[in-house]
Design a binder for these strands. Structure first.
Lengths: 156, 156
DNA sequence: ACTTATGCAACTTTTAATGTTACTTGATCG
DNA sequence: CGATCAAGTAACATTAAAAGTTGCATAAGT
């Protein structure tokens, strides 16, 4: 299976959208993400169904977050993405006719469910507002050290 | 991505091997698993490198578990499978140049690592012996109720 | 009307697992 | 020894899911 990076991607997009109060076009977002506008629309369309973002056509149109960042958790986004598969491993067969497989499935499912629940729990505990705050902190920190790093290596 | 079921599959194979003390051929195992002998060999070859199973060629040859079931944990097998990917989701880009993405990656990685560690911890805590014991319990239980179910629906 | 942007369906590409074929190597049996 | 059995292995085919692409329809603003 290819690794699913939609959650990662859509968070990136949302944080960029959060930095401005004008709608952003899927093309602009696609450029930031080095991907295709249709991919952006596809993903954001899911979020729109859950009233996390809105879209507008025509001039000055584009995408905007339409809820307070504090009220949007990663779990909300996970749901809006239609609950993508969390684990890369799974049982060979569900509902086996073989008792050996039943025993195996039982043991693995227990571990799998615990891991999935932990992930979802973490998703529930993180809001877009927190991520945005973290980003702004990083920007600050980068501003202080970034110029120094630059001046070490060149006279520009 | 297709879901990886090698761990599930190899556990199934190993428990079947544990039920006998003669070597089992990859063909016999493949029949049980409804798969191809080469797939079986491929997977078991990994386990052999970790001294979990041994193989023998020629007449009477085949595969056997060559360590006590008590001493083999799911984690040993996970390692022998060459640490297959655990999570179906990942970051869009590691080592991003974008501070937004850094913030996103940071938050997600934290959750991802916790989930992975939990899974590995569970793997470490389960031995083949435990799975085998669970299987034998199921067989017992099935023996008591199985005949009843059978007699309900037919006069055989 | 023209331009900009989303909406959407169909198709292609990519990646990783899984399955298959064909052949080689080594062990055992007669 | 030679026939047979089974693993070892490489090359190739298939499958499933994500991601990317193309083309065109629809709606909004100028």
């Amino acid at each position: 299976m290819k690794r699913d990076s939609r959650l990662s991607g859509v968070l990136h997009v949302l944080l960029h959208m959060a930095e401005t109060n004008v709608p952003m076009t899927s093309e602009a977002l696609a450029n930031m993400m080095k991907t295709n506008p249709v991919v952006i629309r596809r993903v954001l369309a899911g979020l729109r169904e859950h009233q996390l973002v809105c879209s507008a056509k025509g001039h000055g149109g584009g995408w905007q977050i339409c809820r307070e960042l504090e009220t949007i958790t990663l779990h909300d986004i996970y749901l809006a993405l239609d609950k993508p598969t969390l684990l890369a491993m799974g049982n060979r067969t569900e509902a086996p006719g073989c008792l050996v497989e039943e025993a195996v499935n039982n043991a693995l499912n227990q571990a799998f469910h615990e891991a999935e629940n932990l992930l979802l729990e973490r998703f529930r505990s993180v809001t877009l507002a927190q991520l945005s705050a973290d980003f702004h902190q990083r920007k600050q920190a980068h501003g202080f050290t970034g110029n120094h790093e630059h001046s070490i290596f060149s006279g520009e």
